[in-house]
């Protein structure tokens, strides 16, 4: 009998823990926005990620049938290394680079790319000694 009670409480504890973790990783912060910490939010478009980077958080937003996505990564690479990697990778995947500020830039580098009507913007900058990468899929 005691064993059953203990098992019951263990089961309840696991359920509660799972609920807490789920809520922490998936929080609605704005109307129409769903956020995820440490991973890409469900439905995030297929997009390359440098093996040298870590996902910090991501979100998706929807309005009138349009969807937009954003993801933050951090890395030890320099913004220049990051952007060169993305540029080469995107071109190899059939994306067209429509705008870029990479060469000669001291900080705050970016590129814009397009493929089959889909647009994406990639930004990289150094903040407090760490390189941040932002990938934005504007509402479309």
């Amino acid at each position: 009998m005691t064993k059953k009670i203990i098992l019951f409480f263990v089961f309840i504890s696991l359920v509660v823990t799972a609920l807490i973790v789920t809520q922490r990783n998936k929080t609605r912060v704005e109307p129409g926005m769903t956020q995820a910490k440490g991973r890409l939010v469900d439905g995030f478009p297929t997009f390359p990620q440098s093996s040298a980077s870590t996902i910090e958080n991501s979100y998706k937003k929807e309005d009138q049938g349009n969807m937009g996505y954003q993801a933050y990564y951090s890395t030890e690479q320099t913004p220049h290394e990051v952007m060169i990697w993305y540029k080469q990778k995107l071109i190899s995947m059939g994306w067209t680079i429509t705008d870029e500020a990479i060469d000669k830039m001291v900080n705050d580098l970016y590129l814009s790319a397009e493929r089959n009507g889909e647009k994406v913007n990639v930004f990289s900058e150094t903040e407090e000694g760490k390189t941040e990468i932002t990938v934005e899929f504007p509402m479309q």
């Binding site: 704005e30 109307p31 129409g32 926005m33 937003k61 309005d63 009138q64 349009n66 937009g68 954003q70 500020a101 705050d108 970016y110 814009s112 913007n121 930004f123 934005e136 504007p138 509402m139």
Partner: peptide
């Protein structure tokens, strides 16, 4: 001219 960003706050975007 430098890297146009998106709208993160005060959604919706309309």
């Amino acid at each position: 001219g430098q890297g146009l960003r998106n709208q993160d706050r005060c959604l919706p975007t309309t």
